[in-house]
Design a protein around this nucleic acid. Structure first.
Lengths: 205, 205
DNA sequence: CTGCTTTCATAGCGTTCGTTACGAAAGCCA
DNA sequence: TGGCTTTCGTAACGAACGCTATGAAAGCAG
């Protein structure tokens, strides 16, 4: 394992890569985003990435590991997400930021509609159980962070004592995931933002 | 076409079917529910239905038509859904019924978790565009009915004049679809019902 | 029983799936 | 230049995909 690290770091030996690994991963992410995990074929991926199949396997391992890396790239740095939630002025702001970010990301002009994580794993065969678990973990982690942020506001008196942090966090997560489906169905960004505003009226004062 | 109807109705000629078509369709529905449209293979279906492939094709046409029939069976009678929304005491009751029905259906003990329509078509290749559109239409129709019911409550003075029917209906639909994802991730029914109660606090008085 | 119609099970169609041998080519070091 | 290491494109692997040709079998009509 240590030799593998050294070999990957000091890449002055051997024929150099003829493609931009990062750009190829970006295209793979967009392909998974558009088609889903199982329904995105290797030809779909290699075509979008501009790379032959053996190069793909040499650079990323196999389809599962390529997806997991693409999903990590899609979700962004987990620590940054955690910090954004933690350092928001209030839990309400954190929830609102989460929802606006989702509504925006799901309705981009240059990206596929909906959420990569939701689209990629809703249809789950037994073979993709590991992928489904990885994606679910990303969602659960976000919910856990948001739930903790809400609890902090309750402790600080920003939210009333009887507030259920789990209910609020769950509601936000449900709307986030639901917006992905609605975006896929063609609902524009403005409609999603209206839904967000409507949902946030359930937030305690 | 007329001869086909006559032939299908008066089936006293020829070898009779050796399996219960309705029971086979039920199993096909459960298989699509569990695996999704594209990821459910013909062998998956024939195994669950207890039928060979030629019998499946003779009885249901092809995979797409089998799914559409299974989806219609899953969604239930459209007129019954429309009537339930229309004849609810208030739009709030209609929304609450919709949400409780979803939370219950998505967390059944003997059925797969989540929503068949959401699970089956979230991952969409180009080949399944027709299926995706059919499923989206079912969702949009429900939303249209609910939206109309809300507008009626606004006209009747049950809801305040400034209420946005589209925002309320969209919120309910988003939570319904979102609960499917959460149910797939393992959230129990009680959690979904808590989320529903939290969401309905956004409903105007 | 003999026809006629329909469904049955077996077997296989062509295609696509994810994945990989294999030898040639490209760059560093001696 | 001549190794040495790594990536390149070509070509193909076995398996699974959706789907179907085919002949035997099962029931009703005569």
């Amino acid at each position: 394992m240590k030799s593998a690290e050294v070999r990957s770091k000091s890449r002055k030996i051997g024929r150099p890569l003829s493609f931009d690994r990062d750009a190829a991963l970006e295209q793979a992410m967009l392909t998974f985003w558009r088609h889903g995990y199982e329904t995105a074929s290797i030809v779909d991926l290699t075509t979008a990435m501009g790379v032959t199949a053996p190069s793909l396997y040499a650079a990323f391992g196999d389809k599962k590991r390529l997806f997991l890396e693409a999903a990590r790239r899609y979700a962004g740095d987990p620590e940054a997400v955690a910090r954004a939630i933690r350092e928001a002025p209030t839990a309400y702001d954190a929830a609102r930021d989460l929802l606006t970010g989702a509504a925006t990301a799901y309705t981009g002009d240059t990206t596929p509609k909906g959420c990569l994580l939701a689209s990629a794993t809703a249809s789950g065969s037994a073979a993709s159980a590991e992928v489904q678990r990885a994606v679910a973990d990303i969602r659960k982690q976000t919910e856990t962070w948001l739930c903790g942020r809400i609890e902090r506001d309750i402790s600080d008196g920003v939210l009333p004592p009887g507030t259920s942090a789990a209910a609020l966090a769950g509601m936000v997560m449900a709307v986030v995931q639901g917006m992905s489906v609605l975006a896929r169905d063609g609902k524009p960004r403005t409609d999603l933002l209206v839904i967000m505003d409507q949902t946030l009226k359930a937030w305690p004062v």
